[in-house]
């Protein structure tokens, strides 16, 4: 006990020192997880299925952003308005790529089975097949080695919280994800489209009797989730770089976030993402970096066993 106590005490000192820096990184990661988790949650809401191929939506966004940056960023690192413009272009490209890949997944791996009213296991397997196909195809077309993204901005600290610097990268993530999430939240809560999504989530059969076009609603759900996932892939790639297998671990964590917040619950997805991101970041103090994924996974198992409905509960159908 004594040795372990010392270990903890020593690490708590580190934690006190590094807390805010880690916190900022955790929040940024958390927003990314949240953006991916939204895709899981939306699809789960309308189809009651986990979209195993969502990791590849994320990966495709990363590559789309990479190619745009590669084409447009020159020798010197841009700044000012050209940085803003480049990032916006990257967001548009990655969002489009994400939406496109998500639509393809829906068309090929889901709609064909829905027509036949296939058992649930069949959807899981075809989605796994789609994921496997997509990331390996990306590996073939874009190479199997990781590559870092040309930087469209200078990553200097913008401001400080409690002495911890908040770098440009974090500010970009914060602004983009909050803007997209607020927009999404409003759309689902107030527009006709959002009402359709909620109606299908609540009771697909009744919704179709009430004149909601189910196929269209499901397609739109994939597009919306795909856009957010794609943009998250771009933002993630800005810092880490892109590689064909980049989707796997973030998507697994985003899924954890979605479950943590209550799968099917939009705000829950964001909150779950933040909690996971921050927790994971702070864990770095106590656990070797290599085992961080193990921690995230442990949380997933724990949440699934103890409170499978998550913190906010499953409720896309009831309200946003």
């Amino acid at each position: 006990m004594g040795a372990f106590g010392h270990y903890l005490a020593a690490h708590f000192d580190t934690l006190k020192l590094e807390f805010w820096a880690l916190f900022v990184g955790g929040v940024a990661n958390g927003f990314l997880y949240g953006m991916i988790a939204v895709g899981y949650t939306l699809v789960y809401g309308v189809l009651r299925l986990i979209n195993f191929a969502h990791s590849e939506v994320f990966m495709s966004g990363g590559f789309a952003g990479y190619f745009v940056m590669r084409a447009l960023v020159g020798q010197s690192v841009p700044s000012g308005f050209s940085s803003v413009g480049l990032i916006l272009l990257g967001i548009v490209a990655s969002g489009l790529a994400g939406a496109l890949v998500a639509t393809l997944i829906e068309r090929v791996a889901y709609r064909t089975l829905r027509r036949r009213n296939a058992p649930k296991l069949a959807y899981l397997i075809s989605a796994i097949g789609a994921s496997y196909f997509l990331f390996n195809l990306a590996g073939k077309e874009f190479g199997h080695l990781s590559v870092s993204m040309p930087q469209p901005y200078i990553n200097h600290p913008v401001f400080h919280i409690f002495g911890a610097p908040v770098e440009m990268y974090y500010v970009i993530i914060l602004v983009v994800s909050v803007a997209m999430f607020v927009l999404l939240d409003r759309v689902v809560a107030t527009t006709k489209l959002g009402r359709g999504i909620r109606a299908v989530a609540q009771d697909a059969e009744t919704a179709s009797l009430m004149g909601v076009n189910i196929d269209r609603t499901i397609a739109i759900t994939f597009i919306v989730g795909g856009t957010l996932g794609g943009v998250a892939g771009f933002l993630f790639g800005l810092n880490i770089g892109v590689v064909y297998t980049m989707g796997f671990v973030p998507a697994l964590k985003a899924f954890t976030a979605a479950v943590l917040g209550g799968i099917g619950n939009l705000r829950g997805a964001m909150i779950g993402g933040l909690i996971l991101g921050i927790f994971e970041s702070l864990c770095v103090v106590f656990v070797q970096a290599a085992y961080i994924d193990v921690v995230a996974f442990g949380i997933l198992v724990l949440v699934l066993l103890v409170r499978p409905t998550g913190i906010l509960g499953e409720r896309l159908g009831r309200s946003a």
Binding site: F52, I128, L252, Y291, V294, L305
Partner: peptide, 25 residues
Amino acid sequence: APTLRLRGDYLAIVTLGFGEIVTIF
């Protein structure tokens, strides 16, 4: 014993993570 009470899709993702963890270790 702990994970098999989960629904099918959750089980799939948990086992996926388990395979990954064994590799990490």
